[in-house]
Design a protein around this nucleic acid. Structure first.
Length: 225
DNA sequence: GGCCAGGACACCA
DNA sequence: TGGTGTCATGGC
C-alpha cells in the first residue's frame, strides 16, 4: 500500500479547502499566512457577517475597516493591505470574474499571482489548486515536515525542489493533489517535531517497511502511484 | 509566560 | 542566494 493510500485509510478525506466559494479560498489563503486556522475562521465569519466577502464587497471596503474585521487572524494591517492589492487586481483587470482569472494555464497564471503583493509561492499554489482547480502541488510547513520525516526529501529542501519532487513523480490530477496535500498537513500536525523521529511517531508505520526512505524520486513515485 | 500556528516582504551582506 | 527582523492574535 502506498503512503498516500495509508494516509487516506488512516485519516479519511480531509475535504479541503474548507470554503464556500473560490473567492473565499483566496481570502483564506492570505489570512492563514502564519496563523492558526481557527483564527482565520473568525475573521472570515466577520467578513461574511458584514456581507463583504466578495470581490466587489472588499473592493469598496475601506482598508482600515477591513483591517478591523480580520483582526482575529493576526497581522491585520499587513493582511488588509495584501487583500486590497489582490482584490484591486481582480476587480480592475477581470471585473471580479474568477472564471476569467483562472482561464489561462498555470504557466501564465502563476507568475501573475506571484507578482501581486502578499502572494508568495505557497499562497499562489494554494489559490491555483484549491480555488482554480489547477494541478499544482502545494508545499507548506506541514508538507515539508511530513516529507522530511517520511524520508522523501531533506528538511532543508527548497520550495521549488520539494514541489518538483512531487509533481515529477505523481500523475497531474487535481483531486490527488488536493487530498494528498491536505493529508500531509493532517499528518504534520500530529507528528512529533523531533529529529530523528521518536519511537511513537505516527509516521513510522506509514513508511515503506516501517523505515524512513532515502528521498529518491523512485520512492516518491512508489509511495503514491 | 513562552511557544506556535496551513508566509511574505523588506533589508542586508 | 541566504539570513534576519517585522507583522500580531489566540489557543495551549
Amino acid at each position: 500500500m502506498t503512503i498516500y493510500q495509508r494516509l487516506l485509510a488512516r485519516y479519511g478525506p480531509q475535504h479541503w479547502w474548507p470554503a464556500d466559494s473560490p473567492f473565499e479560498v483566496i481570502v483564506g489563503a492570505i489570512l492563514t499566512q502564519s496563523a492558526a486556522w481557527g483564527n482565520v475562521e473568525k475573521a472570515l465569519a466577520n467578513l461574511k457577517g458584514e456581507g463583504v466577502l466578495s470581490p466587489q464587497g472588499l473592493y469598496h471596503l475601506p482598508e482600515e475597516r477591513l483591517a478591523r474585521l480580520i483582526y482575529p487572524s493576526g497581522y491585520y494591517n499587513a493582511k488588509a493591505r495584501k487583500l486590497k492589492a489582490i482584490v484591486n487586481h481582480l476587480v480592475e483587470v477581470y471585473q471580479g470574474d474568477l472564471d476569467r482569472l483562472f482561464a489561462p494555464d498555470v504557466a501564465t497564471l502563476r507568475p501573475e499571482l506571484l507578482a501581486l503583493h502578499g502572494i508568495g509561492p505557497e499562497t499562489a499554489d494554494s489559490i491555483l489548486l484549491y480555488a482554480g482547480a489547477k494541478p499544482v502541488f502545494v508545499i507548506d510547513a506541514y508538507t515539508r515536515r511530513s516529507a522530511a520525516r517520511l524520508g522523501l526529501a531533506p528538511a532543508n529542501a527548497s520550495y521549488a525542489a520539494l514541489q518538483a519532487l512531487f509533481m515529477a513523480n505523481l500523475p497531474l490530477q487535481v483531486p490527488l493533489f488536493n487530498e494528498y496535500h491536505a493529508l500531509l498537513v493532517r499528518l504534520g500536525k500530529e507528528a512529533c517535531r523531533k529529529v530523528p523521529r521518536c519511537p511513537a511517531c505516527p509516521l513510522l508505520d506509514l513508511c515503506p517497511a516501517g523505515q524512513a526512505g532515502d528521498g529518491t524520486s523512485a520512492e516518491v513515485a512508489a509511495s503514491s502511484a
